[in-house]
Simulated scan of single mutants.
Amino acid sequence: MLPLDVTVLNYALTLEHLENAFYHGALEKFSEQAFVDAGMPGFARRRFEQVAAHEATHVKFLSTALGDKATQPCTYNFPYTDVRSFAALSQILEGVGVSTYTGAAQFISNKEYLTAAASILATEARHESWVSSAINRFAGWSGAFDVPLGLNEVFTLAAPFITECPTTNPVLPVHPFPKLVLHSPSPGQPTHIVWADNDARGATHIAFYTGLNVIPVPIQDGSVVVPADVDGTVYAVAITSDSDANDSTIVAGPAILLFERNSNNVLIESSQAN
């Protein structure tokens, strides 16, 4: 196995460990009645059990492929407090999983591993679609394309859930960016930017990721106008460029933005998820 393939598969395994812990921890905490009391269908918990089994299988598959090079699970802290907040976070994590595999595919040289990663990607997308539509009552997609995220961008989103990892784990060549907060974002409307790190104040634009498109919008007086035609899950990063969003220009983010519309394309929810 080539060194880059090892790194990318361990990167994927890091996220699979996180998802595996997330589902098993929640299912240990919440009974079937808790799901029903939260207004969900009676089958909801049993479907989540199946999702949990898929994530455990992904962990086993990647761990077997990597052998003694496989990263081990960490200790995690997930901020759900009830079944509804668990389901909301499930949608987010599955979406990040889809963007992880979509963005990382370009780095896998072994065609067998690439095929396996594509198969996992498809399953993660099915998870996200089911949670979004059957449980959270939103559309099961964000348009014709999903967003590919870079390695550092995904690690930025995963890092807040990780409290401690084994010291023997291989060191991944990734680092998190500072947090980006957009106050009450809404399509076509200006939103105030809250900087979590003073170093990020050098940003000149906010780049909005929607599908395969990157839309840079200039920052003016501490605010930015959200593009009017975005919907579903959109990611936003602060950049020091007027066009390019990459590891050398990103200074904060990604922020996860949710712009959910009903079947008549009417906005029903607009928020930042992280």
Results as ranks from 00 to 15, higher is better:
12 A>C: 11
12 A>Y: 05
13 L>T: 10
14 T>D: 13
14 T>R: 09
16 E>L: 04
18 L>F: 02
20 N>K: 11
25 G>E: 07
26 A>F: 01
27 L>Q: 14
28 E>F: 06
29 K>N: 03
34 A>V: 03
34 A>F: 00
34 A>W: 01
36 V>S: 08
36 V>F: 08
39 G>L: 05
44 A>G: 01
45 R>D: 04
47 R>H: 12
51 V>K: 00
51 V>Q: 04
51 V>D: 01
52 A>P: 05
53 A>C: 02
53 A>R: 11
54 H>R: 09
55 E>K: 04
56 A>K: 14
57 T>R: 15
58 H>I: 13
60 K>F: 09
60 K>N: 07
63 S>N: 04
65 A>R: 08
65 A>Y: 04
68 D>V: 12
69 K>V: 02
70 A>P: 02
72 Q>D: 09
74 C>V: 04
74 C>E: 09
76 Y>W: 07
76 Y>N: 14
77 N>E: 08
79 P>N: 15
79 P>M: 12
80 Y>N: 10
82 D>G: 04
86 F>T: 07
88 A>Q: 13
88 A>C: 01
89 L>F: 05
92 I>C: 06
92 I>W: 00
95 G>T: 11
95 G>K: 01
96 V>Q: 08
100 T>C: 08
106 Q>C: 01
109 S>H: 05
116 A>F: 08
116 A>V: 10
118 A>E: 12
118 A>W: 07
119 S>F: 06
123 T>C: 06
125 A>M: 02
129 S>I: 13
134 A>Q: 15
136 N>H: 07
138 F>P: 01
139 A>V: 03
139 A>L: 15
140 G>L: 10
